[in-house]
Amino acid sequence: MTRVAAFLLRRRGGKGWHWTDVFTWMWLIGGVVLMFGPAVWLAGSSFKSPAALAEFPPSILPYVTAEATVEGYEKPLPLYRVAGEDGETRILAQVRRIGIVAQMVDPKAPGEIVKVNIADRTPVREISFATENYTEPFLHFDFFLYLRNSLFVTLMATLITLVTNSMAAFALSKYQFRGRSFVMLLILATLMVPLSVILVPLYSIISAMGLFNSLWGVILPTVATPTGVFLLRQYMLTIPDELIDAARMDRASEWQIYWRIVLPLTAPALAVLAIFSVVWRWNDFLWPLIVLSRKELYTLQVGLNTYAGELNVQWHYILAMTVVTMLPVVLVFVFLQRFITTGIAGSGLK
């Protein structure tokens, strides 16, 4: 034990603990609690029954009061631990409660009713995961549709983004033509035109094209990402031009050069853009909220917001569906975060 502690507390150079070391570890450990804690708490709560969710103080694990079916009673009765006068505790089922007196029966001998002061009894609790929080919204609400719409939007938008952005990046990195720098400047300038500035005219254009209340209306305005073009172009610039000249000598067409030579060599940058695009499109909220007004077309984010905005919020379903919505991004985080964190550190894009 002490060797483990010595190993963990060992510092470079073997000097003692400076206050900055203490502060560093407090910040890091506080960071773990603060950054992961809220999401973990939400995920834990999502397995609780509505009754357990309403409890205050809240418990960490999803407890429910145990119940038992007793002969002669239709509904299952809640079980309580009752301290008898002789100091022995018995487990009794409660039939009804009148004021501070509970009428209880022994499940083994249901004939005799025992009267117990409610202060003398504590509920028998057992851990139970309310998996119906997850299954119900898919079976009885539209969440299956929302999931399908979100998947469709995310995959289609990412696919189109990869194709159009890489084509544009290819043209901007491997061809000399007049106005090239103007086109590049134009693309970078659109970085400064956020969605919230062009909401009204964009909406009217989408409507004029008949794409209002269509998933394509959600997909198309988002696919020509300037960051994607920029990222891919920077990467393609590092591909030697000799390679392309050699291919031209061998009578390869420009399309073949793009498709068979440049694209495979750009794979790492394409992978980074694909990850980004999946996260962006999966998380999009404001634009789908405006374009989609028919319920069956909602994406998960819009559907979730709608259910959470109802007057009588059904938290047990909301929490479970939030976890489902969070899941793909958590998977990206677990398996691919190294790509992203180094990608951002390298290029400062988001």
Partner: peptide, 23 residues
């Protein structure tokens, strides 16, 4: 440790809003 502080960046705004509404 770098990943720890990056985790919430990936979450969707709707999920962020709901997590904190719950807390």
């Amino acid at each position: 440790w770098r990943a720890v502080f990056f985790f919430p960046v990936l979450l969707s705004p709707v999920v962020v809003g709901l997590i904190w509404r719950w807390i």
